[in-house]
Design a protein around this nucleic acid. Sequence first.
DNA 1: CTCCTATGAAACGATACGTTTCGTTATATA
DNA 2: TATATAACGAAACGTATCGTTTCATAGGAG
Lengths: 201, 201
Amino acid sequence: MTELAADDIDDRRRSIGARRNPETERAILEAAEAIMAEEGIAGFSIEAVAKRARAGKPTIYKWWPGKTALLLDVYHRQKPASVHLDTGSVEGDVFAFLTGVFAHWGDTGAGQVFRFIVAEAQRDAAAEASLADYAAERRIQSGEIFQRGIDRGELAPDIDVGICADLLAGFIWKRLLTGRIERDPEELRKVARQMVRGLLA
Amino acid sequence: MTELAADDIDDRRRSIGARRNPETERAILEAAEAIMAEEGIAGFSIEAVAKRARAGKPTIYKWWPGKTALLLDVYHRQKPASVHLDTGSVEGDVFAFLTGVFAHWGDTGAGQVFRFIVAEAQRDAAAEASLADYAAERRIQSGEIFQRGIDRGELAPDIDVGICADLLAGFIWKRLLTGRIERDPEELRKVARQMVRGLLA
DNA sequence: CTCCTATGAAACGATACGTTTCGTTATATA
DNA sequence: TATATAACGAAACGTATCGTTTCATAGGAG
């Protein structure tokens, strides 16, 4: 009783006026990221994020349409250092790409987030559109690895860089989605070699 | 009142004794398949399946641990005609594989089911294990395409057939998950060619 | 005839969703 | 200074789906 009446601490974030509180946004995104890293997909809910961020659910729903939009923001906050090393050979670039992506996914928890986004995209139209945009963008980016190879005469001019990008992305997607993002440099080297040089005797 | 007392039809399936009713199993699987085909992933729930099959939820949960297991059974019921055509060349086999899988996924609705299973596997441990088993099995099967190539001297003996299978499966998975299973024979031919012959000038 | 198990209707508690209400805060505007 | 506006968070709400339990009923096995 007495201590309540006297000076009960109330350190909840209050409004800072008629504008968005950046502290709130930061707290929510960090809470979402932390829950995703610690509990994984299973323990992730808007309720849990609100509780951990000491924010109200209405606040979250005000700024993000739903779980998927929030996770997309989290994923984009976790951008890796660029993986376009331009090693001079296409095989080297592909190897660097594979190594970089798997390191990023495995070390930062971004892999867990991306798994969830792909899963959500299978039943949520908004997530599907966002993922399609993102995939198309990345398709162009990794296509540049192969375009550079064509430009410098290393690769045949009639190859389809889009297909190359799909094969490369498909490989890492399937590995991620089946929980197999081990990073054996020898294996990744072999992947790069087989993709570029082909399989013929 | 009168008609109820007289002879109210009660055509619900009852127990046929202390053993599983095959009729019930069939009705549940068909209802699940139909809902998946008509409503898609969104409208699919155990409740909906039970209602459509005129079965009780406890009956479904008795024979299937959950939604994912049921869908896996549905998927396995939709098996295609074998796609191992053994055309004589690895490139031809890969092309036939791609054509066959996309046709199966697109025509039978099996693609929708598989999308859902992959999505579920991202948050359900049981589904993840089931999918891993299935993927490992398919990995061996499609690896045989490349093993035959090695055996007949068409492919280099030191290639990794597992990686080949992962590249192939990754390609179709990513296309499915991003809703791009168009079947342009010319493009699929190009995929097969680039995978087998390589990209070098 | 007496177990044992299957079947399905109904209701349950639990969980998460997305929303509404309400009191509080502080900026922006008149 | 006075008022309107908008963000914030707590609490509670209604809804949906989950997976389970209870119950009455059915029929084969021993």
